[in-house]
């Protein structure tokens, strides 16, 4: 048991528990939603909704499996969002503005050409990830970007571990193919 889980389990104060959980997982929820929904506004709404659901279930929480549980709520909510708003059809990526923001400060300090090259490379990768099919993308983002283990992803997405492994392999392969298409363009 990690010290983080120990603290959460021993605390009586609901608000403090919630604050710790939010601080720990808010960016994970937001990033996952952003890649799944491909839209900052929707990702923002989805994250807020997940945070509210966490608060509503704070007393029934299994803290040792908190990440899997939270990512399962996030995944299910994203799927609902996609169904409701008919976003399964490819939408234009709206993440470019964020990349520009994150590189904005560095450009004044380091080589602007290198910064631009990095920006383009990262943008390409992000766009390629966004273009992955939902089932591959969810596994890829959770494993590669959120650092989750196979078993945690299996619990979060409610699929067998073998499917997680197969989807991860396919996602990596597909991503490489997407990047080759970019290069040829």
């Amino acid at each position: 048991m990690t010290y983080f889980v120990y603290i959460l389990e021993t605390m009586n104060n609901k608000t403090l528990k919630y604050n710790l959980l939010v601080k720990q997982f808010k960016n994970n929820i937001y990033t996952y939603s952003l890649y799944m929904l491909r839209n900052r506004m929707d990702a923002d709404d989805a994250t807020q909704e997940v945070l509210i659901r966490i608060w509503n279930n704070i007393d029934k929480f299994n803290y040792s499996a908190a990440k899997s549980y939270i990512m399962r709520i996030t995944h299910n909510l994203c799927i609902d969002f996609l169904r409701k708003r008919n976003l399964l059809i490819n939408r234009e990526l709206e993440i470019t503005e964020d990349i520009e923001e994150s590189f904005g400060d560095e450009s004044t300090e380091s080589n602007p050409y290198l910064v631009m090259q990095m920006k383009i490379a990262t943008q390409k990768i992000k766009e390629a990830i966004e273009k992955l099919p939902e089932n591959l993308k969810s596994v890829f983002v959770l494993y590669e970007m959120q650092g989750m283990k196979y078993i945690e992803i299996s619990k979060a997405l409610e699929i067998p571990i073998n499917n997680v492994k197969v989807n991860l392999f396919r996602a990596r392969k597909k991503l490489q193919e997407e990047l080759k298409i970019y290069e040829s363009e």
């Binding site: 939010v22 937001y30 923002d44 945070l51 964020d98 994150s102 990262t122 990596r172």
Partner: peptide, 27 residues
Amino acid sequence: TANEVHSIELEEFPNSSLEKVFSQLEL
């Protein structure tokens, strides 16, 4: 590609949105 992917950081959830959640829950 793997190096590029691993260098991507998590997106920061805006504080303004977090404030909205807190105020909605009256925390």
